Structures are given as structure tokens and as C-alpha cells.
Computed example of a mutant assay.
Amino acid sequence: MEEQLIEYWRSAGKEISILPEDEKEKMWDAIRKKYLRPGVHIGYSICDALNCSLASSMGGADSWRCIGDFMKENTVILFFNKDWGGEFYEIENGRMFVPFYDEECGGIEFYITDSEASFLLAYNEAQCLIAMGTAADWLEGYKARCQE
């Protein structure tokens, strides 16, 4: 999938890069401190380790489609569960992830944050979108607007 991801972004004329190991570790540290339960062991799914008391969530097979509204054209950090590779990708125009995911990899868990880890978006195999940090407030507002 890495090849498809890189090709997709490059063919659109957008920047994509793999974070160096030291930056990846800093990002992991920030995510652990802000969004995971203290001392939790990460098994297959990072979602199982999230501190859900800090999250907003929305279920449904297409719940992930709304994230483009939050990410807009901002640069984001994208990663997957370890079985899909351990790389963290810095991608320009986060909104582009929605059509990429739809075309290339629908159904697999993904995680998206920014360089400050000010938010975490996660979509798991149970078809649940989980939003934490600044994304939690956004998702609550999104759900409220959808119910009007």
C-alpha cells in the first residue's frame, strides 16, 4: 500500500514524505501521552489502547468520509497499524486522504494527526470514527449539524 500512497500524492503534485525515525518516535511519544491509556500495551489495534473518555466517536461504514472537512488542505501525519507497516507519512492536503482511502484501501484502520499531535483521528475495523483532541469538538459539532 505504501507504493500506492506515495504514487497517489505525487501524481496529484502534492508533497508526501516518510518521517525520519527520530521524528516518528517524538510523534509516538506525544500520541501516547495525550491519547492512550497510561501504561497500556498496544496489541493488534492502536484503537484498543485509546483513552476513550477523551474521545468523540461516530459509527457507520462511511463515518470516515467526513474527515476531509476537518483536515481541509492542511498537512497531516498519517499512519496505520503495524501490520500495514510502521511508517508515518507526512502528507500535504489531508483532504485528499478521503478519495485515496475510498479507492485504494477502504476498511483498514488508519490514524491521522498533525505535527503537534493536537488531534488524533482514528478509524477502526469496527467502522467507528474516533476523534480526540481538537478533532473531538469538531466531530461533536459535525454530528449536531447532521442531526438538524
Rank of each mutant, 00 (worst) to 15 (best):
D114R: 00
V40W: 04
E3A: 10
E103F: 06
V76E: 06
G133Q: 02
D29Q: 10
D137A: 09
G43T: 15
R145A: 09
E21S: 10
I108Q: 12
A135W: 00
H41V: 15
F79Y: 11
G106V: 10
K72M: 05
I108L: 14
I91W: 07
D62K: 01
Q147M: 12
L5V: 03
V76Y: 05
M27W: 07
K143G: 02
G43Q: 12
E23G: 07
Y35V: 10
F80D: 01
D137I: 09
S53W: 05
S57A: 14
S57H: 08
E21Y: 13
I112Q: 02
K82G: 12
D62H: 05
Y8M: 00
Y89W: 08
Y35T: 08
D137F: 02
P20N: 09
G86T: 10
D83E: 15
L50A: 04
C146P: 10
I130L: 04
I108D: 08
D29E: 14
W28F: 15
E2C: 00
P99A: 05
D48T: 03
T113Y: 03
D102A: 11
T75N: 01
W28M: 11
M96L: 14
S57M: 04
I77C: 03
G60D: 03
I18F: 09
A12I: 04
K24F: 06
P38I: 02
E3S: 14
E15L: 15
A30L: 13
M1E: 11
G133W: 00
E125R: 13
R65T: 10
R37N: 11
L54C: 04
K14D: 08
M27Q: 14
Y44C: 09
E116S: 12
